[in-house]
Amino acid sequence: MRSEFKALVEALGQHILGKPQQIKLALTCMLAQGHLLIEDLPGMGKTTLSHSLAKLFSLDYSRIQFTSDLLPSDMLGATIYNAQNQEFVFRAGPVFNQLILADEINRASPKTQSALLEAMEERQVSIDGTTYPLPAPFFVIGTQNPTFQSGTYPLPESQLDRFLMKISLGYPDWDAERAMLLGTNQERAMPAMELAQLTAWQMQITNVHASDAVINYILKLVTMSRTTPGFSHALSPRASKALLQAARAWAFMHDRDYLLPDDVQAVFVAVAEHRLRPAYQDSNEDTLLSQRLLDSVDPLAA
């Protein structure tokens, strides 16, 4: 792994204890210019992680707490009449920031959800006939409670597809939680990154070479989801694009300018799982759908 990234992961690891894999995935997601969805129970450190990421890259940061009565204009902004100047001015909403934390995204009404997701896809906002571009880079980190919690509007498949990755943090282990309680690690300062550095990296990622063998591997994984029983939603072409992009970022982070099947495997669960739907849910099948796909495709066969 590149030393820069090692440092970054370590720095973030001081805030989110014992979750290096998730941190790496979150960084990968940012490098690949994708939006990140964190699904977990309340209190697992979702907000902390996104806050730390914003701080790390010194991005403008805003947090939108989604509630069932949140309106699109609360988030996007509105045109307001200024009595002094006697004109209408647009007051930008919290969405005009480089990093948005959309907290508990599945508590908002579908109308508000889709307003945000439109902004995510187009990277611009249209209000009253005027189009306002969003700042670049533009990241959305959505957090959501597991859908079976009450009072939630689960995100529809088409909108889940817009998030490059979905990760969940899970409970920390004994030592990590103990360290957190003792507060031993908290004092160290965050290394501040230049924003320019991030964009430079993002440019470099596109140069990571993907050989035919790896492209075929991705194609096989995607086709497998479309042809084998057990899936009610298969992986879309957008998913295969996302998979390639994320794998490139992962390879770049590991100081390689070419892709290995291992890179695809590393990001596959995070990229694919939230885009798949089982045909039926059975309590006795615990393996993830994406893991099943990984297990049924040989990464070496070209």
């Binding site: 042809t227 057990g230 899936f231 009610s232 045909a279």
Partner: peptide
């Protein structure tokens, strides 16, 4: 349809 709903009808 139960087991492989994502397949096209023809398939």
């Amino acid at each position: 349809q139960l087991y492989a709903p994502q397949l096209a009808f023809k398939k």
